[in-house]
Amino acid sequence: MSPKARPILNVAKLVKRFGGFHALDGLSFHVVPGEILGLVGPNGSGKTTAINVISGLYAPDGGEVTLDGQPIGGIASHRLVHRGINRTFQVPKPFMSLTVRENVQVALSHGRPAVAPPSVADLLDEYRLTELADRPASELNSAQQKMLDLTRALATRPRLLLLDELAAGLNPAELDWIAGRIKALAASGMAIIVVEHLMGFIEHITDRVIVLNAGKEIFEGKLAAAVQEPQVIEVFLGGEHAA
């Protein structure tokens, strides 16, 4: 990653309220092409909400989100997908009664226009879904559904990929494998934001992390430095005890 690269995504003083509750309370950060940014924080700190706002599921109540310097707050999700944003879901959301292949096909034919779009077969192969290709998504286990979520997202040719707890529930061998995949995607120039509770995994793949608490950033930098910060330790231990 070149530190001087221009951010693909910039989030400035982002606010998202649910009723009177501030799920995001002035969150600011950026990510550059080719970078893997970790987004960590205790349960309920606003990680998923941040992904939901960036991917157009919710309009922000304050602040700004820009993609390539253009404001995108409040733009419909499918338009953002066409501009190169995609994401996976913490609880995977495949099209349950469609086959695995059809799940990917929809995204392939409606995604971002690309010079050389990937093929369904290659995508399924890369994410170990080939043998399940003709089965309805409902028959997949949760880890497989997560891979299908990821494959669907990649089929739209994203430039910015948001991963919401993709690694949770994978075994150590699968973790190694998916870490390699994510790094390869970043090496190809994709900007990736990884939300994860598994600190070892985050440590292994990210360049930099943002620590969130109550919708605000409390730390930005290397994970190794974050775990030295009293405020971060306090939030995590406090969070663990409360949970």
Partner: peptide, 9 residues
């Protein structure tokens, strides 16, 4: 929601 994320209007 997933359909929108597949790029479908």
């Amino acid at each position: 929601v997933s359909a929108a994320m597949a790029g479908v209007n």
